[in-house]
Simulated scan of single mutants.
Amino acid sequence: MAHQLTHRTTAEFPAEQVYAVMVDPDYLKARLERLGGPGAALLSHHVDANGARYELRHGVDANVVPPMVRSLVSGDLVIERVETLVPTGSGRYDGTVSVRIPGTPASADGALRLADVDGGSEFVVDASVTVKVPLIGGRIESMVAEQIEGLLAQETAFTIDWLRQRG
């Protein structure tokens, strides 16, 4: 059974400005350098008037991977993440996120929404984390969801700091 997670953040900046930063390759590379872990990289990137699609690779040092998750992989954990965002109206962007951990039965898929709200914008990630391992999969899903929540919080802080410094 999948573990559902919803991550919601607000910023004092309009959605258009947040979107421009979120899809900027220099920003993505800087964020990965700071938060991406070993082997982090921007694997592909495409932005045009119809929206954006980019693929990221994160690394997690084996020493910080929870033991139950470590039982699924040997060595560092590699996480591949594909995100899309498209303009769907004035001050609104919708998209998808897909996360894979090669060599494991773990994945996450979901929807992204960035929209103007009073005083700025709101970014929402609704995702479903799945780990297909009999008996312990649910516990691992909860751990993976916690790690995703933590990463999203760090990325949000990085993004807001980026916007404030360059806004």
Rank of each mutant, 00 (worst) to 15 (best):
V73Y: 08
S74V: 13
S74F: 11
S74G: 14
G75L: 09
G75T: 08
D76V: 07
D76T: 10
L77V: 12
L77N: 02
V78M: 06
V78L: 04
V78R: 10
I79D: 02
E80K: 07
E80Q: 08
R81S: 07
V82G: 04
V82Y: 02
V82I: 15
V82R: 13
V82T: 15
E83C: 10
T84H: 13
T84E: 12
L85K: 12
V86C: 08
G89V: 12
G89A: 13
G91Q: 11
G91N: 14
R92E: 14
R92F: 05
R92M: 11
D94Y: 08
D94G: 11
G95P: 13
T96R: 13
V97D: 00
V97C: 09
V97N: 01
V97K: 01
S98D: 14
V99G: 00
R100H: 08
I101S: 09
G103H: 14
G103Y: 09
G103E: 14
T104N: 05
S107L: 02
D109P: 01
D109R: 04
D109H: 06
G110I: 00
G110K: 00
G110L: 00
A111C: 05
A111Y: 03
A111P: 02
A111K: 13
A111H: 12
L112M: 10
R113G: 14
R113T: 15
R113W: 08
L114W: 05
A115R: 09
A115S: 04
A115D: 03
D116C: 08
D116Q: 09
V117D: 04
V117L: 08
G119E: 06
G119I: 11
G119R: 10
G120D: 04
S121C: 12
S121P: 06
E122S: 12
F123A: 11
F123G: 04
F123Q: 13
F123Y: 13
F123R: 13
F123S: 12
V124Q: 11
V125E: 03
V125K: 01
A127R: 01
S128L: 08
S128D: 10
V129K: 01
T130P: 06
V131E: 00
K132V: 11
K132P: 00
V133N: 03
V133K: 02
P134K: 06
L135V: 14
I136S: 04
I136C: 03
I136Y: 05
G137P: 01
G138Q: 06
R139M: 14
R139F: 12
I140A: 13
E141G: 10
S142Q: 15
S142T: 14
M143Q: 15
M143C: 09
M143E: 15
M143G: 06
M143V: 15
I148P: 01
I148C: 06
E149T: 15
G150M: 12
G150P: 05
G150L: 12
L152W: 03
A153I: 04
Q154E: 08
Q154A: 12
Q154F: 03
T156N: 04
T156R: 02
F158N: 07
T159A: 14
I160W: 09
D161V: 12
D161G: 13
D161R: 15
D161C: 08
W162E: 06
W162D: 07
